[in-house]
Design a protein around this nucleic acid. Sequence first.
DNA 1: ACCTGAACACCGTTCAAGT
DNA 2: ACCTGAACACCGTTCAAGT
Lengths: 230, 230
Amino acid sequence: MTIAHPEGLKPRKTPRQARSEVTVEAIFEATIQVLLTEGLRRLTTTRVAERAGVSVGTMYQYFPHKQALLYAVLRRHLDAVAKAVETAGGRYRGQPIATIANGLVAAFIDAKAARADVSRALYLVAAGLDTSELLDGMSRRIHDATATLLESAADAEFDELPLVTFTLLSAMFGTVRMIFERGATPATWRGLRAHLPAMCRAYLRETATEKRPAPTPPVPPSRKTTRPGK
Amino acid sequence: MTIAHPEGLKPRKTPRQARSEVTVEAIFEATIQVLLTEGLRRLTTTRVAERAGVSVGTMYQYFPHKQALLYAVLRRHLDAVAKAVETAGGRYRGQPIATIANGLVAAFIDAKAARADVSRALYLVAAGLDTSELLDGMSRRIHDATATLLESAADAEFDELPLVTFTLLSAMFGTVRMIFERGATPATWRGLRAHLPAMCRAYLRETATEKRPAPTPPVPPSRKTTRPGK
DNA sequence: ACCTGAACACCGTTCAAGT
DNA sequence: ACCTGAACACCGTTCAAGT
């Protein structure tokens, strides 16, 4: 559950007194505020400290450098997203792939949209940091939850589960990310909310080998599994 | 064809003598080299100037600030990608959607993979810059080329062409981007090269209304078009 | 026309001194 | 234990002086 911090990005000390917990919390909140009001480019250690009502020195007592601070903020957000997908994984277990695809996309989009402004700001933060280990950890949680979910599907089996999971998630992550980085219109958002699940369903139907004959629809899924080689 | 520079990101002057053209070219090349060997974080105006064999002052004669320099390098690369998709658009006009999907994905991946290291480095650059106008311009070219291509498909018509184009491209862009930002294994690359087109084909088949009865396959496409509203 | 590089303002980070 | 803020090193940017 806990993701290891890459060396050097650890918080410098853990708060031991009530006073310092308040301080750390204030620093977190100030970081997000400065990020949203001033932008990443103008996010300065001095500015964050000022906004948090502490001195720069205090900040450096908890975070060895600016990167570590941003890293910690990013980590919080990604953790919430991973949790959302894991929860969805529990809820849709054993359902048909259509339901799974819809549920998964909805959970992911909702988690991001809940704090859309923060999400958007953090994409920039993530790019400027060495986040490979953090993203690896979060991706693994989400990947595992998704693979387990797909494996439990009532009406389908997958020959290459890891690759299917990876492709599916890449499209989901990437699409939503794309939307966030450029400001999408509400119309685009609505459109995507329908078309992204549609794409996922179509893909899963294409790559699945049927487990039992589906009850209602007369449409036969393709029999051959797609081969990844070359 | 030419994309307007956002205010303030214009090159400061255009080279008028052969000497300065050489200088600018050296600066471009130096930027990419420093980016690849030192990373974005250690990319310093002094370092780039040194590597290019000119003084900082000279650099500032051509680029008003560091951002403008990075912007220009990014612009070059994106232009090459847009050109690749436009070319593919010409080549696959009037083909069946399966062929179009395959060709489009291949063209895009190839364009990125051609200079994979530069691609990777530039994703970081793009995130740290105000690139909305640049990306809007490039996206428009790619979007237009793709929409025209889809409209020409021999075996399908699309009720909501703009939304379909957008969703398709988002998945493509996003997926490839995802791969680039984290180092993907060759196996993953090969897998994706097969599965990403498969996903695109499945999606297009799902959202298309058939133009003429397909000749070979007995699989009927779904008749109802997916509705984007809520 | 084009180039140089010392000089300036600003930001990340430290550390001796405080409570 | 926790906090302060002047001090230092480094980076982006400028501009008077050169060819």
